[in-house]
Design a protein around this nucleic acid. Structure first.
Length: 563
RNA sequence: GUCCUCGUAGCUCAAUUGGAUAGAGCGUUGCCCUGCGAAGGCAAAGGCUGUGGGUUCGAGUCCCGCCGAGGACACCA
């Protein structure tokens, strides 16, 4: 159980006890929240409950705080309870209890920081899901960093998590890719084929054209053009998907499943949801197209589900992305029965959120089971100027290039450190030049330092065996323990609010507190008189390493032994 | 024009259901390595939280107006 929840219980007990003793008047038991105060003088935890109770209790807040403080039952975790103006109750944790937590952290090992949720949920995190038409750009990298870290955190919070990449293999983008590959392929064979105006101009398409010309000679020129475009598009997409997978793995992003959009049609899911919507009168035909009557559900306007034959000749290509999205949400929630389906979408899709949620409602799905996390864009700057990015023109900095220049750990850390709803301004010159000063190295350095201490201890024949943690009484030692114990709260916060950015901030804090401890407290000592404290501190340092490793793993970056 | 996100130290960003004197990193200035990794520590300077109102015991956080940045408003995805 989280300490703050335990303390909240103590506060409730104190309120009841104070009421029994007539120190407080009768009023219904409120919800009590305990939080971290800003100042050390205010202890480890505080509650502002007295301020909130003032009205109901018809007493001055400070008076209520004093009554509560006086009736908090004694508890092994708490050393001091104080009422403080204007109406807080402050808790200071017991030094002895804190010291004991070092053994607890070591015992928890790789599972330290895990929570036990009231109910273990099946959660799907679908993220990245970039069109498989070319190399990833940095924005999609942000998507992957957010999605994967979130998935890690939800697992730590005690849930079962399924990571999925949604392959847009049914849209016009893939057709454009096929057209582009076809043109490059024909050109590679010396044919004067016009490159489509809206084609993908990147060099990777030229490469594919050459490759296919070599592998298949003129096979695709011998078949009907439409068929060749389709088959080359499929081949091209396969290659792009392999590249995407490779790029994502560099960033430590992996998926349990790669889900085909097309399968929503071939597998009959779309037909099913279409009939459900039809039965509810939410499907209308207009101007030759089939529309989703979103207005009936309070949305601003209707949206096309299936385009008219006049606009798109190929029947397979007529459904819009919205048609797929509706079938997909049904597949996630109704068919695969995920308790929660989390989407990670870029800001350019935020306008689609209400329609998907409306569709979920229309299909009788609980909208609370669907969460769509929107993140803002990443803008790159180089030489003081914004780097414009467009896949069509092929002018963009790829994620691969960034990973190459800056390094996977730094990229992932930077993409996750900022809250999703803030845009990221990424100065490439600075990122490359000052990469040594990236916060991720600050954290990793703390880890490497600990690894070095542990190595030194082995060389010096000092062991943590039988280390007595009750000897850990130095303020810097206790400060470090306090910092380690915050991990669970950070996991809870990040999981509840779907805000993975809290993790790197915590990691920086923890590393800083470790560095400060290191400066103040000698761990491995050659003085025989220090033998006992050395053993205890080795335990402390091992616990700190455990905590750093866990935090870095959650963020998805490595914890190097040496740097 | 309507909607979404954002505006906090010189720069990049935090700030846990609205809580106490708004915090880090980088940069700047000054200290600290002849015992565990100086990719480090300690200290200083730096703020009317874009702006004007409002809500209340209390607002960076909630509401309204204005200014500024990015995004969305297709039979594109």
């Amino acid at each position: 159980m989280l300490i703050k929840n335990h303390l909240a219980d103590l506060v409730k007990q104190a309120i009841a006890a104070a009421q029994n003793a007539n120190a407080l008047p009768a009023f219904p038991m409120p919800d009590v929240f305990v939080e971290r105060p800003q100042k050390k003088e205010w202890g480890d935890f505080a509650t502002s409950a007295p301020l909130k109770l003032a009205r109901d209790a018809k007493r001055a807040p400070l008076q209520i705080a004093q009554a509560i403080a006086a009736h908090v039952p004694s508890d092994e975790t708490v050393a001091k309870v104080e009422a403080s103006a204007p109406g807080f109750v402050n808790f200071t944790l017991s030094d002895a209890w804190l010291a004991r937590q070092v053994d607890a952290i070591l015992a928890a090992g790789a599972r330290f920081g895990d929570l036990e949720p009231p109910r273990r949920l099946n959660i799907q995190v679908e993220h990245v899901s970039v069109n498989p038409t070319g190399p990833m750009h940095v924005g999609s990298g942000r998507n992957g960093a957010i999605g994967d870290t979130l998935a890690n955190v939800l697992e730590a919070a005690g849930h079962r998590v399924h990571r999925e990449f949604y392959i847009n293999d049914n849209g016009s983008q893939v057709r454009h890719l096929g057209e582009s590959v076809f043109a490059r392929y024909a050109q590679a064979l010396g044919k004067d084929e016009k490159f489509p105006d809206d084609g993908y101009q990147g060099a990777y398409v030229i490469e594919m054209g050459k490759q296919f010309a070599q592998e298949h000679t003129d096979k695709f020129l011998q078949m009907p053009r439409a068929q060749a475009v389709r088959e080359l598009g499929a081949l091209g997409m396969k290659i792009v998907l392999q590249q995407l997978r490779a790029t994502l793995e560099k960033m430590n992003v992996r998926f349990d499943n790669w889900f085909s959009e097309r399968s929503l049609y071939t597998g009959g899911t779309f037909d099913t949801v279409f009939k459900v919507l039809q039965a509810k009168g939410l499907v209308v035909e207009k101007d030759g197209a089939v529309w989703f009557a979103a207005q009936e559900l309070g949305e601003e306007k209707d949206a096309v589900l299936i385009r008219s034959p006049q606009v798109i000749a190929d029947p397979d290509a007529r459904p819009t992305y919205l048609a797929s999205d509706i079938a997909y949400v049904w597949n996630k929630v109704a068919v695969r029965k995920f308790d929660r389906a989390i989407y990670v979408w870029g800001a350019d899709h935020h306008g689609d959120v209400p329609r998907v949620l409306a569709a979920a409602r229309a299909l009788g799905l609980d909208p609370a089971r669907v969460a769509i996390l929107i993140y803002q864009f990443v803008t790159l700057k180089r030489g003081g100027e914004t780097v414009k990015m467009s896949k069509r023109t092929g002018e963009f900095v790829t994620l691969d290039e960034l990973l190459e220049e800056v390094g996977p750990d730094a990229v992932r850390f930077m993409l996750i450190t900022q809250s999703a709803n803030a845009t990221i301004d990424f100065d490439l010159d600075v990122a490359v030049k000052h990469s040594d000063e990236n916060p991720v190295y600050y954290v990793q350095y703390a880890h490497a330092r600990i690894a070095s201490i542990l190595k030194k201890a082995i060389e010096s024949g000092v062991s943590s065996e039988d280390g007595d943690v009750s000897l850990l009484t130095h303020p810097a030692e206790l400060e470090l323990i306090r910092a380690m114990l915050r991990l669970q709260e950070v996991v809870e916060l990040a999981a509840n609010k779907l805000e993975p950015h809290h993790l790197p901030h915590y990691a920086i804090d923890l590393a800083g507190i470790f560095h400060s401890f290191y400066k103040q407290c000698r761990v491995v000592s050659s003085d025989p008189a220090d033998a006992a404290i050395s053993r205890a501190r080795l335990k402390l340092v091992a616990a700190a390493k455990n905590t750093l490793v866990r935090t870095l793993n959650l963020i998805g970056v490595t914890a190097p032994e040496t740097m």
